[in-house]
Structure formats: C-alpha cells, structure tokens
Design a protein around this nucleic acid. Structure first.
Lengths: 198, 198
DNA sequence: TAAAATAATACGACTGGTTGTCTCATTTTG
DNA sequence: CAAAATGAGACAACCAGTCGTATTATTTTA
C-alpha cells in the first residue's frame, strides 16, 4: 500500500481550505459550497469523507493546531539552554506572520470557541483537546525556563501556561478589532517580559 | 411629548432579544426571523428601525455592554476606600450569574470579535468602542486601588487593565468549552490575587 | 374646530439566492 | 464481480432584504 490515494489528497485539500475559510468567516459564515468550489470537489465526495459539516469542523480544528505544536516544539528543541528565548522567538515569528496577513483570522480556536463552543458538542470536544495540548507545550517550555532560572518558580508552570493562553487569546481578539499587533506585543512584554520573570 | 412611543418599546425588545440570541448562537447562527418571532414584530418594522442586520448587531453591541459599565461603576462608587474589593465583588457576582446560566454565551463582545471582527467594519467599530470603555472602567478601578496601596504601582493601571481584559476574555472562552467557571476563578486569583498585588 | 392633506410607520407576502443534507446512477477499484 | 468512491443534481428549509399597501399621526387648511 505505497500508493498515495486521491482520497487522502482531497481530504487534505478540503481541510486546508477549510482552515483558511473558517478562520476568516467563521463556521456559520462559511458555506460548504464555497469550500467545495475552491478545491473543486463535489458534495457527494465531501459527505463520503466527513459525514457532516460539524464533523468536518472538528477535523479542521485538529488539522489547524498541529503545525503550531510542531513549530513551538521545534523552537524549544533547538535552543538548548534557553527555553524563554525559544518562546519569545516563536511569538515573534507568529506576530510577523499575522502582520503579513494583515491581522486576518487571528486564532481559529479562539474564534470557534466563541461561535460554536456552546452549540456544537463535537466541536467543543475538539476545541478542548486542541487547546489543552497547546497549553501543555507552553507548560513544558515555561517549566524548562524555570529550571534555567529565567522564569519565576513560586508559581507553577501550569498556572502560568493557562494564564498565558488566556491572555494571548484575548490579545488576538483585540488585534482583530484594532487592526494592529500592538496588543500582542504588549501581552508578550507584560507576561513573558515582566510578570513571569524570575 | 411625554408619550412613550411603541416604536421605542419595540426597539428595546428587539435589542434585548438580540443580545440573548446572538450571545448563544452568534451573528451568522441567528436568523432575523428567530428574533422577530420571539418579540412578535414583523420584518418590515425591523427594517424601519435598524436598516440592516449589520447595523442591528452594532446597536446590540452597545446595548449589551452598558449594564456592565453601570454595575462596575456602581460597585466602585459604593465601596469607598477599597477599590480592589469592589473589583473582586463585581467579578464574584458575574461568575455566580454565569454559573446560574450554565456557562451559556460567555461574553458577547468576545464572541463577536472572533466571528465578525474582520468581516464587518460597522461591528468592528462598535466592538472597539465598547471594549475600550469597559477597559477604561477597569483602569479607573485599578488606578484607585493603586493609590489605596492594594495594587502595585510599578506598572500603569492602563497596562494592567489591558492585560486583565485580555486574560478575562480568554478565560471566558475556556469556560465555554470546559463547561466550568474554574478558568474564571483561576484568572481572577492569578491576576487580582497575585500578579497585580502590591 | 372640523375636514382635508400629508407624512410616518406598520405590515407580511414575496424575491432571488443559499444553506446543509441526501439520493442514485455511474465509475473506479481490489 | 462485489464493494467502495464519485459526481451531479434534487431537496426542503432558510436566509437577508424589498415593496406595495394599509394603518395611524401629524400638520395644514378653511
């Protein structure tokens, strides 16, 4: 079974397009037709792949967060000895990307938590899993920074990771309505550059 | 011109119902018909009052935030001499209310920032104004707490108010997907009870 | 003050278009 | 050949918004 199946390519294309469109227009604001047309896949195939829009959205959520986990883990692995620097570098890269795309979208998790967090059980579960795994990576990074002495140790890494994820979500929302990455930079500076400092 | 106009009653009813439904189902997830049926007002009247769904949403945003401003200002005015206690009491009341309504909705501003923050210019403006005025009230409260010596003064009240609003938005989103007010309590404790302490 | 003219508002059937979902004949695959 | 995948379209429900008419208020006229 070496062959790359067309089905998997189609699925992947649908998920990529789904991430892009749901990010900017939300769940109810994006019709299946729009996604289908963009990747030229008929409806019948879609329902064969995903079963429903709701399931599709749940898969999109998983698909969305994975690259971020990989990237952050990558930065942490590279910079042996300075986890805090790795976290800051990761953020800097993310902020630069958001400036490139003119603040469009923000964070799919945040947007969908607000929109369907209490109407779709399936999405709610997917969001919970994804957000927790993202928080966990931050916990690891902060924990390492603690043992390196750059982050204060009178609070648990878990506690700070939770606070960080919350504040960052809020900052991303404010970025969208202020059309500026200033809230992000301010958030980074206030927490990583001050409150969390050893 | 003492007479209470039916038009104003209808507008008020529409706004109240609009707040309730948009909170739980979002902008695109809520049809006008649903709102109209709930308050028994015909389509034509709606378009006389508001012109479009988008304008209606912008008015809903204003209508939503006002009571919170009044309430927080009220707590601050009452408790002369202990602004920090007033802030905590305000939060405690809000958390209790969210538990009563079983975490449904969360914050309309947060939800709409994510959903239409970068697709509707009109809503974006309304959100910006509302969120800023909410942040301003927190700034006043924190500033008073600083002069009372309960909150640290090496950071500006504005900076802390911004961080607070961001973190609280994030905590509200996580409340929705975790179906628990634990994130809210944790957020309150971490910032007001620790990082912001004098 | 009474009647007429004018303006403002109320109303809901209707429009053109889109939604998510499903069906089914055809094609592809193992 | 049987099973799975495909693709085009059918489907009813719903969407935001419009428009001509009916009703009610307000102003003008006599």
């Amino acid at each position: 079974m070496e062959k790359i199946k067309q089905k998997d390519i189609n699925r992947e294309n649908l998920l990529n397009e789904g991430v892009a469109l749901l990010m900017q227009q939300g769940y109810h604001g994006t019709g299946l037709k729009e996604i289908l047309d963009a990747v030229k896949i008929p409806k019948g195939s879609f329902y064969n792949y995903f079963g429903s829009k709701e399931n599709f959205a749940a898969e999109i959520i998983n698909h969305y967060i994975e690259p971020y986990l990989v990237q952050l883990n990558g930065y942490l692995d590279e910079s042996e000895g300075n986890a805090l620097a790795a976290l800051n570098r990761y953020l800097q890269e993310g902020i630069a990307e958001l400036e490139r795309t003119e603040f469009k979208g923000g964070c799919l998790l945040g947007n969908l938590m607000g929109e369907v967090g209490d109407t779709s059980e399936i999405c709610r579960n997917a969001l919970q899993v994804s957000l927790n795994s993202y928080r966990d990576v931050w916990e690891i990074g902060l924990s390492r920074a603690q043992s390196e002495g750059t982050i204060r140790s009178d609070k648990t890494a878990r506690e700070m990771a939770d606070l960080w994820v919350n504040a960052w979500q809020g900052a991303l929302l404010r970025m969208k309505i202020e059309q500026s990455t200033a809230p992000l930079k301010q958030c980074q500076q206030a927490l990583l550059g001050d409150f969390f400092k050893a």
